[in-house]
Simulated assay, not measured.
Amino acid sequence: MKVAIVTGGSSGIGQSAAIQIAKRGVGVILTYGANRQGGLDAVAAIEKEGATAVALPLDVGRSGDFPAFRDSVVDVLRDTWQRDTFDYLVNNAGFGQSSLFEDTTEELFDQLMRVLLKGPYFLTQRLLPLMTDGGAIVNTTSNSASLASGLEPGYSAYATMKGGLIVLTRYMAREFSKRGIRVNAVAPGPTATRISGNAFERFPEVIPPIVAKTALGRVGESDDIGMVIAGLLSEESRWITAQNIDVDGGYNL
């Protein structure tokens, strides 16, 4: 059985991706930060599908914890799947916070950098020796970093990190290609998740303007993104690499 690691799998896009991946017969190691119950709920949903999953704690903003996380992954692979390698990695964990350029503090800038760019960089570096040749990686970026559709005031720092992750995706694809490992990214548009402290629930008035800007006429749902992530990992996408794919329903089209 193939095995995937999905960071930020306790809610939203990450939880959807973990479930969609598991529906394709892949075992899943998913991570959670503060939302332990969400991680357990995701495991329960995957087990309900007849698949196998394990939830592990991980703060992607604390790269010093990555060696211990790697050791936990080794233990879980051995104990649960009798393997010493895994096949797929989804770098999804993150957070969003808007702040106009003139209001952005160094503290917020550094926090976004640690979680959204440094975290995926060094977590992938730490886990790469455990990945099988011919595997696949998907990074979750954002259409806020897309010159074509996503530029909105208040996201200069967030989008800068996501833009860096888009560039990193291409470099990973180039360097990992010698092992047959494909690397792609998905760039969600506005999506109804827990990001930014459940902003869509707290501020429902922002939804109609977003819908008006979206060609397909609604706000994105987690499964809209999760299914694409699962598809990019699959054999059907075996000839796709180094791509950043907007998954936004035609936002600002």
Rank of each mutant, 00 (worst) to 15 (best):
G12S: 11
V183W: 04
V167S: 15
I210P: 01
A44K: 14
T214V: 10
N244T: 15
L40T: 11
Y32V: 11
D224E: 12
T104P: 04
S177F: 07
A44S: 14
D79L: 11
I207W: 01
D65P: 03
V60S: 04
I210G: 00
G9K: 03
A45L: 15
A22R: 01
V206G: 00
F101Y: 14
G249C: 06
L232A: 11
L89I: 04
A145V: 04
G119K: 11
Q37T: 06
S16A: 13
E106Y: 13
N35W: 00
G25N: 13
V3R: 04
R126L: 08
I181Y: 07
G197Y: 10
D79Y: 02
P208C: 01
E235P: 01
E205H: 01
R182A: 11
Y171F: 12
I13Y: 05
G220E: 10
E236K: 13
D41E: 14
A199T: 05
L40P: 00
S142D: 11
L233C: 03
F203D: 09
E221H: 12
I137T: 08
G25E: 12
G64L: 06
R182Y: 10
G135Y: 10
I195D: 06
L130H: 01
R83T: 13
E106P: 03
V26E: 08
S16E: 10
V167M: 13
S99R: 09
